[in-house]
Design a protein around this nucleic acid. Sequence first.
DNA 1: ACCTGTGAAGCTGTTCACAGCA
DNA 2: TGCTGTGAACAGCTTCACAGGT
Lengths: 226, 226
Amino acid sequence: MTSSTPPPKDRGIPEATVARLPVYLRALQSLTERGIPTISSEDLAATTGVNSAKLRKDLSHLGSYGTRGVGYDVEYLVYQVSRELGLTQDWCVAIIGAGNLGRALANYGGFGSRGFRIAALLDADPDVVGLGVAGLTVRHTDILEDVVVDEGVSIGVIATPAAAAQGVCDRFVRAGVTSVLNFAPVVLNVPPTVDVRKVDLSIELQILAFHAQRKADGNRLGLLDG
Amino acid sequence: MTSSTPPPKDRGIPEATVARLPVYLRALQSLTERGIPTISSEDLAATTGVNSAKLRKDLSHLGSYGTRGVGYDVEYLVYQVSRELGLTQDWCVAIIGAGNLGRALANYGGFGSRGFRIAALLDADPDVVGLGVAGLTVRHTDILEDVVVDEGVSIGVIATPAAAAQGVCDRFVRAGVTSVLNFAPVVLNVPPTVDVRKVDLSIELQILAFHAQRKADGNRLGLLDG
DNA sequence: ACCTGTGAAGCTGTTCACAGCA
DNA sequence: TGCTGTGAACAGCTTCACAGGT
């Protein structure tokens, strides 16, 4: 067994925990900026909107990085969470679709700052190709495969219209990309080795509408019943 | 007991089910457009990427709308799912922040088409106020409260920079909005009566990075072990 | 024969409550 | 005393497998 690396802990971190780590990380980075050296699970839980026991259990999956009676060292925890999330290395991202959404993504500050480098912003529309967006020049979708290989793209972002999404996804997959972030309102078909995450604006609205309706119905019943 | 309304079923639909209903709805609408009158749970599950038993259980929460031996009537199911999600009525939406993301949202076709009307697109920057976006004129954030009251806004969308988000949210809440969709990378503080959903682009990327790293580590171990 | 609707089992995630350490 | 780390109980979700209509 090689022994130079510190025990990177069990790989079996629950999905639910993984989804919360970025939230903790952001809060911790803000604490660093404000020069706060230490934080308790109770306080960190409050600022991130979770239960403190849950937060402790989440962090315990990475290792025992807290000190009983004191709390967590902010800077150390930032490093450990970053490492666990794979943010100590850089990830190359290609964004396909330079419409409103693609441009918004390219301009989104959070990308560059946190270990994500936008290698390319591509579009199929000749009128859009050549435009400058966020320090990038929009290039044509034709070169998708070249970009993936030459720049070592490991995450593909699909910000195309729904009709084009599956085609773009297939090209990503054939070129070797195994992580896809999909903003198009379609269910993508991929081999099981490929990881797809979906962000769907209208679904979020519909979920809100459901709850809004329930609140309205509840009030109406409340008037009838009491 | 009043009897004119059809039994709208138990209000206790699981969150996980609610989150999938919009996906089913989209698939069903596409079936309607293609003139397909009937679909089995197996087929609908395949196109939406879920397990067929899960789909049946999800739909069973709305009522018994299928026919054994046949499947589900597409048009009828579209109606029932729409009704359950509250999409048979219109919801007024106000988008705050007319930067790249706000404009992308305003231009997003899925909004208007599915029972969501954009009542206003507001921004705090005087240079942006007055611009035309997707048939709307950007107005100043100052009138947020007026818009909410006058137009009957029930869903507020926050597409501002992080620093402005909590302030905008507070104003929404004070004006009576109880559903908020937040795109800013902050945890919003709201009273428990208010429903907040969050969409965070960089969190999605970080989750992908975690899995990408795990795949990479796995390969590396594979090389060492075998 | 076919397909829905659902009890039951199993799994994942959350919360409680406290042992154990600083 | 204060706070972490965690077993144990609990709650919610998924999947299986099949009873029960058509």
